[in-house]
Each structure stands twice: as C-alpha cells, then as structure tokens.
Simulated assay, not measured.
Amino acid sequence: MPNFDYKSTFHGTSAAFASDLVEGKVDVSNGGGELGQGFYVGDKLYVAKAWAKQKFDSETVVEFRMNDDDFWNFDIEALSYSEAIQQRVNIKAMGTQRSHLFGKDVVWGPIVGGPDIYCDQEKWESGKGQNHLNGRNTGRRIR
C-alpha cells in the first residue's frame, strides 16, 4: 500500500532567488556549505528564516514538500552527529565547502556548524535529486 505521508523541508534565501526556486530552478551545483557542494534544506522553518535573515537580511523561505516514499527511493547517506562533525572538519580543512561531493543523491544529517540547536539538514547533490526538486512531484511555495 502506498504511503501518502508528506514531508516538508525549508530553504532560507533572498526574495529574488525564492521565485526562481518555486519555478523549478534549483541547481545543486551552485551551493556549498559545511558538507560541500549541493542544495541545502532543513527540517525547521525557523532555522531557515534565521539563515535568510543572517545571509540576505530577509526572512524568505521556500518550502519543498514531497511524498515520503519518493524521498526514500533516493541514494541517501545518513550521518550521525559525530560523523557530520568529522565530515565538516575534513571538508573545511581541505577547503572544499563548495566542491566536495559524497557521490549520493542526498546527504542527511544534523547541522553541526552554528548555534547549538538541533536541526536536520539534507544536502541534495545529484542530478537525479535536482530533477526531483524541480519536478511536478515536489511542491514548492514561498513561506
């Protein structure tokens, strides 16, 4: 029996870029962060708003909504808290925050650089993942 549960994740951004994302123009090769190159979303709306405020002086957030079953069909690397810290340290030491790839569709783990609050993040890094985020089976809206 199919699972009709949906999950939402959030991406804090500028108002100008939010419109492009909602139109299906996610590009996983543009971004970078503590786990390397990719498009990052998190599971907490308020964390995405805080990121947008800090980086863009905006509180614009794009919500991505997809079927749980669709998500679990991707090749996912799940990191524990300690694994995420070690990966972040290694990636930063190599200076590859904008180029490091795991060779997965999605890297999923806690945000470890920043305020001491727990928030899961997903780093989408593959073309398959990009196509899904931009496709008709993923809902996108500005929050």
Rank of each mutant, 00 (worst) to 15 (best):
N3D: 03
D5I: 06
K7G: 08
T9N: 08
G12S: 06
T13H: 01
T13A: 08
F17M: 11
A18P: 03
E23V: 00
E23S: 15
G24E: 07
K25T: 02
D27R: 15
D27L: 12
V28Q: 07
G31D: 01
G32H: 01
G32W: 01
G33Y: 00
G33N: 04
F39C: 10
V41M: 08
V41K: 05
K44D: 12
Y46E: 08
K49N: 03
W51I: 08
A52L: 07
K53C: 07
Q54D: 06
K55Q: 10
E59R: 00
T60E: 11
E63R: 14
R65W: 04
R65T: 15
R65K: 15
D69E: 14
D69W: 12
D69P: 03
N73G: 04
F74M: 04
D75S: 10
D75W: 00
I76G: 00
I76P: 00
I76E: 00
E77M: 06
A78Q: 03
L79H: 02
L79E: 03
Y81Q: 14
Y81C: 06
S82E: 13
E83T: 06
Q86T: 11
Q86V: 05
Q87D: 13
R88W: 12
V89E: 15
I91E: 09
K92T: 09
T96Y: 10
Q97V: 08
L101S: 11
F102S: 10
G103N: 06
G103R: 14
K104Y: 02
D105P: 06
V107F: 05
V107E: 00
W108F: 15
W108Q: 12
I111K: 13
V112F: 03
I117M: 11
Q121V: 01
E122F: 15
K123R: 15
E125D: 04
N131P: 00
H132A: 07
L133S: 12
L133H: 06
N134P: 12
G135C: 02
R136Y: 06
T138Y: 08
R141N: 07
R143K: 12
